[in-house]
Design a protein around this nucleic acid. Sequence first.
DNA 1: GTCTATAGCCCGATAGAC
DNA 2: GTCTATCGGGCTATAGAC
Lengths: 194, 194
Amino acid sequence: MKRREINPQQKVAQVVQTARSLFVTNGYHNVSIPQIVSESGVSIGAIYHHFGNKQGLAKSVHDLTLQQFQDWFNQRLASCQSVREKLRAFSDLVLEVTDQDPEMMEYMLLMKHGEFLSDVPPICSTEPFRQVQEIIGAGIAGQTLKEGDSFLAAVAFTGVILRAVELRLMGVMKQKLAKVGDNLFDHAWASISA
Amino acid sequence: MKRREINPQQKVAQVVQTARSLFVTNGYHNVSIPQIVSESGVSIGAIYHHFGNKQGLAKSVHDLTLQQFQDWFNQRLASCQSVREKLRAFSDLVLEVTDQDPEMMEYMLLMKHGEFLSDVPPICSTEPFRQVQEIIGAGIAGQTLKEGDSFLAAVAFTGVILRAVELRLMGVMKQKLAKVGDNLFDHAWASISA
DNA sequence: GTCTATAGCCCGATAGAC
DNA sequence: GTCTATCGGGCTATAGAC
C-alpha cells in the first residue's frame, strides 16, 4: 500500500488518495493535515507546496473524482443504443462502483461538498446527471417512456437507484448491489416507463 | 425571534433550535459554541450546565427532531386505511415538512450524524422507515403491490420521494414540492404497484 | 441556574535549512 | 521539492463569582 515513491506525481497521487479516504471516513473537518501526513507518508511541507492549503487539496480530490466517474460513464454510453440500454448502463456503473470502490461513491453521493468547497455545484447537477435527464427526455419524446416532466422522471429513476446506493453505503443494506441490480432496475424502469 | 426568556425550559429550547439551524447550515464542526451563544442569547455557562458538552447538545437536537417527525407520521397514519393511503400519507408528510421546515428535513436527510454522534442508527433504519417497509410488505402480501422483496420495494418507493426532497433541499429543484406531489407519488407508486 | 474569564489544546499555515 | 520546527489563533471545556 505504502510503497516508497520517488516520482513527485506519485507523491501527489498518494496524498490525494489518502485524503479522499480520510475525508470520506471521518469527514473533512475531522481530518487534520498532520493525519494526512502520517497516513500518506508525505511531509507537511510537500503537501503545502503542491496544494497551497487544505482546501486546495480538497479541490484536487473533488476534480479528479468527478472526472473519473464522467469518463467511465461516457465510455459505457458509447456502446449503447436504446433508451433502456443507456439507463441500464448508468444503473450498472453506479452499482458496480459502489460495490468495488465504495469510498469513491460515498465521496460523490454522501459528502456535503459545500461545507468545505465553495462554488462547486451539487454532484447531481453535474454532467452525468444532466445526461441522464437528456436520455429520459428523449425517451419521453419517443413514447418509450410515460409522458410528463423529464426532470421529475429523472428524479424518480435516479431516486430508486441512488437510494439503494445510499442505504448500502450507510450499512443498512447488507448484500452486494450486484445481486439486486436487475430487481432494482425493474423498479426504476417501472417508475417511468409508458 | 429572540424574545427575552425567563423560563429555563424556554432557554433550553431556544438553544436547541438555534443549534439545529446552525448545524444544518454550516455543518456541526463549523459551528462553535461561542457562535451558538451569540445567536441564541444564552451564555456558554448555561449551555454547558444543561447539555454537558457540545455532543450532548447535538444529542438533544437529534432526539427531539426524530421524535417530532415520528409523532406527526403516526398521527397521520391513524386516519388511513388502504396501503395506498398510508404510503400517500408518508409522501405528503415528507413533502410538506420539506416545504415548511426545510431545516428539519435537511437535518434528518442530509446530515451525516455518525460524524458527530456515536451510536445513532442511520435515520433510514428508524421507526418511520421501518413502518413504511411494513406497509409495503402488507401490500405485497395482499397483492396490491408487485411481488418481490419488500425491502427493495421500500427502497424504490422512498427513493423516488426522498430524491426529490434531496434535490429540493440542495437547491437543484426550484419549485415547491407541494406542486409536484401528485406527479411524484405516481412515479413512486408505479415503481412498486402490481 | 446563569454568568464571565480563562486554561489548555490542537490546528492550519509559515519559515527556512537542506 | 522536501523536510522539521514553530507560531498564532480559535476551539472546547472548566473555574468560580453571583
